[in-house]
Design a protein around this nucleic acid. Structure first.
Length: 666
DNA sequence: TTGCCCCTCGCCCTCTGCTGGACACTA
DNA sequence: ATAGTGTCCAGCAGAGGGCGAGGGGCAA
């Protein structure tokens, strides 16, 4: 169900909606006894409906005769049926008025009261369900009436118009609701005034307290009145109801014409006549190009101009041209003179059009007249509601022409195309640091998170320093990163990790907390104890011997063999390593790990340069091929220092041998 | 009666800003 | 391994600009 504006000025629903609302009628002014009235414009089908209801009309003179108005059981909509209710007014002039009660199809009485002469008050009856209540209660949002469709709308007096189901005069409250509005401070608003030959049928809203707005139905035989006859207080409501039908002053200086189907009034008969045509479907002027019809020659001409491209009003300042002079004036104000006559009293906003100011004012008042029917969201204008409804429907009308991703909003798609597929994508440089961010909104988040002033003190986790900006804190803490923060108070030793300092301190204190359970020998470090135990107390322990194949010299440590091989030129590290078990392999991995750790940052860049899997082989090949320039370049890029270079190389060779990396032919 | 002009509604658009999920990086 | 953090990204709403088209006032 589409939401409808419910609290707008009355004029808003006096135009197009009425065309939709009103049945086809050939209105013609008839002046009798100083009264402007329309003739009976019922269609043949309507007249037929009236004929067929003759028996019914006879019967309705009886009291309490219920009308069952052919509700459509197939329809999911709520069908209102009308029912006669005996009128007990003491008002003599209203004795012949009928009261209508409205029942829902399920038989739930929703109309009970008759509070005053000439008026029928429809109040909420027993609430069988929210839906039933919502269908009647104004305070539940009038547009909920759109869920109700009145297929038949029978009035009960003899002269009251009868509309059959297939008649064009069938009144749909769904359409009626389009006219409904509540204006603040306005006590009553006419919702619908359906005029008949002799009677008028009105539906009005009555603003009570917040929870008791009501619909008022009025049926009156009187259709003519002299405006100078002021209604008495007791007749106020009835008079108000009557005042909306065709009328005209017959005495006094000025005559006023009132439209009986809307709030329109005019002192000019010509204007009134022209207005009344808006309530008909009479459109005698045919566009020969598209067969669309129009009420007036002017409308047709303007329409034909859209076909022919004729735009007689050309802008002197640009190439734009318009069908009407008013459009040109407005365009000129928007684009060239920037004249903005409509100024907001609460801010500096000014607009070219009054409707824009009206829309703007809602941003001050917070008014959100357009309620979503599926959630609690309400918007300030129709477009936002329409756009919001896509979140319920899942509709994504905008598609990226490149990757065909779909979007709910055109702006989102535009940003997507720019960021994903665009060239020279604009970037946003943080004014406080070197960060560059693709989106302005994300830069704002960055600024908020990192550069916003913090009233609370942000303490460095490594030192007593205190900051009020998160970015400054992070930058400061980075200075601690490679710092040997742990300094020995007994000597110049310093280290990065506390556990290292703990072990070092023991060299000063002589503490040896790790004791061998077999021989009670004590050690400062656990690793030393473990090595001791393996060497002297583990029967299965076989000491590793790294032999140089060239000179036969043995080494207890692989690294010593490696150092030896540099002098000897045997290349023993490779052969020695290949023959050893897990421990050796692990040791070499440790070396690699250490090396990697040390070179992590630089190696990162090297990785990228060497392109993934090929990085190891790239360095290896450069080493083996002796390409000194390239080699130096890659080594430098990888942060490989001279001192570490060959150990690094050997580890790599080992890993290649072990199958951890492959050698690229390229 | 008709045409012109102005007003208003309604629609669509853009720009803007916030939000939260996804993902990568880091401690 | 995990939690915290920053950036990317799409979703969505707020505000306002611009214009087509219909209706009413008024004068020719």
């Amino acid at each position: 169900m589409a939401a409808t504006e419910i609290s707008v000025l009355s004029e808003q629903f006096t135009k197009i909606k009425e065309l939709e609302l009103m049945p086809e009628k050939g209105l013609k002014e008839e002046e009798k006894d100083g009264v402007c009235r329309e003739k009976d414009h019922r269609s043949p089908s309507e007249l037929e409906a009236e004929r067929t209801s003759g028996a019914f009309q006879d019967s309705v003179l009886e009291e309490e005769v219920e009308l069952v108005l052919a509700p459509s059981e197939e329809s999911e909509k709520h069908i209102l049926t009308l029912q006669t209710v005996h009128f007990t007014s003491e008002a003599v002039e209203l004795q012949d008025m009928s009261l209508l009660s409205i029942q829902q199809q399920e038989g739930v009485q929703v109309v009970v009261q008759q509070p005053g002469p000439g008026l029928l008050w429809l109040e909420e009856g027993p609430r069988q369900s929210l839906q039933q209540y919502a269908a009647i209660g104004i305070q539940q949002e009038l547009y909920s009436l759109q869920e109700i469709e009145v297929l038949q709308f029978h009035a009960l007096e003899e002269n009251v118009m009868v509309a059959s189901e297939d008649s064009k005069l069938a009144v749909s409250l769904a359409e009626t609701a389009g006219l409904i509005k509540l204006e603040e401070g306005q006590e009553k608003n006419q919702l619908l005034a359906e005029r008949t030959k002799e009677q008028l049928f009105f539906v009005e809203t009555m603003s009570g307290d917040e929870r008791s707005d009501e619909i008022v139905l009025t049926v009156s035989n009187s259709n003519v009145e002299e405006q100078e006859d002021q209604p008495t207080a007791g007749q106020a409501d009835a008079e108000k109801a009557r005042s909306t039908k065709n009328q005209r002053k017959t005495k006094g200086a000025k005559q006023t014409f009132h439209c009986d189907v809307c709030m329109f009034t005019s002192s000019r008969m010509s204007s009134f006549n022209r207005h009344m045509k808006t309530h008909t479907n009479e459109k005698p002027h045919l566009c020969h190009l598209c067969l669309k019809t129009f009420r007036t020659v002017t409308l047709l001409r303007n329409h034909v101009n859209t076909h022919t491209g004729t735009r007689p009003y050309k802008c002197n300042d640009c190439n734009m041209a318009f069908v009407t002079s008013g459009e040109l004036v407005r365009h000129t104000r928007y684009k060239h003179t920037h004249e903005k006559p409509f100024k907001c009293s609460m801010c500096k906003y000014a607009s070219v059009e009054a409707s824009k100011l009206k829309r703007h004012v809602r941003s001050h008042t917070g008014e959100r007249p357009f309620q979503c029917c599926q959630c609690s969201y309400a918007s300030r204008d129709t477009y936002k509601l329409k756009r919001h409804m896509r979140t319920h429907s899942g509709e994504k009308p905008y598609e990226c022409h490149i990757c065909h991703t779909r979007f709910t909003q055109s702006g989102t798609m535009k940003i997507h195309i720019l960021q994903k597929h665009g060239e020279n994508v604009p970037k946003y440089q943080c004014p406080h640091c070197a960060t560059i961010i693709a989106r302005k909104s994300d830069l704002r988040v960055h600024m908020r998170n990192l550069h916003a002033y913090s009233a609370a003190e942000l303490k460095c986790r490594y030192c007593p320093a205190v900051f009020h900006e998160r970015y400054a804190l992070i930058q400061h803490q980075k200075t601690h990163k490679n710092e040997k923060r742990f300094k020995c108070k007994h000597c110049s030793y310093a280290c990065k990790q506390e556990r290292h300092m703990t072990a070092h301190i023991r060299t000063h204190t002589g503490e040896k907390p790790f004791t061998c359970l077999s021989c009670n020998k004590c050690f400062r470090q656990k690793q030393l104890l473990n090595a001791h135990f393996r060497k002297y107390h583990d029967a299965n322990f076989v000491p590793t011997v790294y032999k140089c194949s060239k000179c036969g010299k043995g080494f207890s440590r692989w690294i010593n063999l490696h150092r030896h091989s540099e002098k000897c030129g045997s290349g023993e590290a490779k052969s020695a390593a290949s023959g050893k078990g897990r421990r050796t392999r692990k040791r070499k991995q440790t070396i690699l790990k250490e090396a990697t750790k040390g070179q992590k940052e630089a190696a990162k860049g090297w990785k990228e340069a060497a392109n993934g899997d090929g990085m190891i082989s790239a360095h290896r090949n450069l080493c083996l091929l002796g390409s000194s320039d390239s080699h130096a370049s890659v080594s430098q890029g990888a942060g490989i220092t001279d001192a570490r270079h060959h150990a690094w190389l050997i580890v790599l060779l080992f890993l290649v041998e072990m199958g951890f990396y492959h050698v690229s032919n390229s």
